[in-house]
Design a protein around this nucleic acid. Structure first.
Length: 253
DNA sequence: AAGCCCGGCAACCGCCGAATG
DNA sequence: ACATTCGGCGGTTGCCGGGCT
């Protein structure tokens, strides 16, 4: 985009210092104007990179740790409805990001494919749909028919509003939904079975590993308000350059 | 103990649509 | 009305740490 940034733009993992800086500037200007934040902060990052770092990692509203069983189930349910619309799915899981869900789904498919491979190596009669899936030829990854598959958009609202989740979720015997994309349904039936097992596991008492670890610093304190500001262009890069030490001593107690 | 493998995750890329001048 | 910029999204890659051989 810019003129001079092609040599100086940083890529790769974020340093702690960069994180501090980004948090500070998001606090200052809100989490919308990423290009502006990138420039004014002096971070040698693109606006996109800043946004991604914030959305997927620094945002204090994020949950950490593994998806809880009910979240996992929700992801599967929503993916069934919407396909690879990760951001849409993520909106239904507070504190979870599209990236996280996408990664979860990939991992999930990989696992399923492996299980399938193992279990079907002796009995090839079982549905191959999931293993196909993992080889990216079917419902899951780059197949455009997924995202363009007939979505039941109209049902979406009622699904959540009517509290019909449980029922429709468990009512998956055979082709109970749309008759198209039967391949996917076969796959889903396998998923349902596995989920039942998963459900059993989740009954075990556990020490809430899912609500884990807040970010190491109290980012939340930074974000209690959302800032907007006119004439920010006045801020030069020199105005607010912070080191993590400065930040932690001056802004976090 | 060392090397290898694999899973999880952070981050980048390219595309697209909305917003703005 | 058009061109440009920017943010959001989905797909993909590559690194890192832990487990296994």
């Amino acid at each position: 985009m810019g003129h001079d940034d092609h040599e100086t733009t940083r890529k790769g993992p974020w340093t702690e210092n960069e994180d501090f800086q980004l948090v500070f500037y998001v606090h200052m200007f809100g989490d919308r104007r990423w290009d502006f934040i990138a420039k004014v902060s002096g971070l040698k990052r693109t606006g996109k990179s800043c946004r991604l770092r914030w959305v997927n990692y620094l945002n204090p509203g994020l949950k950490r740790g593994k998806l809880a069983p009910h979240e996992e189930r929700l992801v599967l349910e929503l993916h069934f409805k919407h396909g690879n619309r990760w951001s849409k799915i993520a909106r239904k899981l507070p504190g979870r990001t599209d990236n996280e869900i996408k990664n979860y789904w990939r991992t999930f498919l990989r696992k399923k494919a492996q299980e399938k491979k193992r279990t079907t190596s002796g009995s090839p009669s079982l549905s191959p749909s999931l293993s196909q899936c993992s080889s990216s030829s079917s419902i899951c990854t780059s197949n455009p028919t997924v995202t363009s598959m007939p979505m039941i958009e109209t049902k979406e609202r009622s699904f959540y509003d009517t509290g019909g989740v449980e029922r429709s979720f468990y009512d998956h015997s055979g082709a109970t939904r749309v008759s198209e994309s039967s391949e996917e349904h076969e796959g889903m039936n396998e998923i349902w079975k596995d989920l039942d097992l998963l459900e059993v596991d989740s009954m075990k008492p556990f020490f809430d590993p899912y609500s884990e670890i807040a970010p190491s610093l109290s980012w939340d304190s930074c974000l209690s308000t959302s800032w907007t500001m006119d004439g920010q262009e006045e801020f030069t890069k020199n105005t607010f350059h912070l080191t993590s030490q400065q930040f932690s001593s001056g802004f976090i107690d």
